[in-house]
Design a protein around this nucleic acid. Sequence first.
DNA 1: CCCGGCGCCTGAGGGC
DNA 2: TGCCCTCAGGCGCCGG
Length: 287
Amino acid sequence: MPELPEVETIRKDLSKLLPHQKIKRVFFNKPKMIHPSVNYVKKILTGNAITKVGRRGKMLYFILADGNYLLVHLKMTGQLVWQPSRGRLVVGGHPITGVSGVPNKFTHVVVEFSGGAKLFFNDMRQFGYWKVVSFNEFNNISKSNFGPEPLTKDFMFNDFLEKCRARKRSPIKAVILDQKVVAGVGNIYADESLWMAKIKPGQTAGKISKAKLYLLFKAIIKVLAEAVKYRGTTFNSYVDSFGREGTYWSHRRVYGRNGLSCKRCGKIILKTKTAGRGTHYCPKCQK
DNA sequence: CCCGGCGCCTGAGGGC
DNA sequence: TGCCCTCAGGCGCCGG
């Protein structure tokens, strides 16, 4: 379930490792995850190099030396594991319990670099994808599938307000999960942002005042920035090979705290289903 | 256009 | 011990 903060953490780590690495060969074993085709992606990647690692919402992109873009989406359970030519593994993504080392039964892509390092893509549930597109296609996707980046000046309150007003009959949680409204919010940070803004996730967007939507706008930024600072959220006792784990989990205010008391008013946090997702909120101080 | 719901996948965990 | 059910949720797609 990597959301913006987890993907941003992976992006930062990979941007220290990948640039200027020449791709020697690639291996794919799940054709349906590779677009437009295994053969095309192999042809483009082999002999190419990665010049930059970027992120758009929850999607990673790699700018290639020939100008093409490689898009990688981790969806729910994707991991990118870097194996240096010598040294320890570096893991980014959702921890998979009980699996250590690579390759393993969930490894669907292997990229071998000419210096001997390898990049593995593991994805237990096979929802993720690798896709090669041109610069123009990338721009089209970036514009048509994604709203503003919440941690940049592109995220502006008046636009956010307008989009909320346009979705007046939807629960507000569904609105902020919409990647075209704001890019990168997923289930955890949606609940966290709504708690911070004191808004009930199931509240109809059209019934929320401008002032409260402003609080939500600010809360989304604050929650995501804070989570980036903590290197995202990791469950269980997962650590990457640098011994670092995302520590936002211990700073979270509401997600997964059902049955525990609200950190603001003390009432018991409830868990329900809103917008088709597990949803956590305080019945007293979120209206 | 808008919106809810389903399918894609696999594994964990609970009930019996 | 094992079967069956639900849940986990990003996102494309479909149908009302």
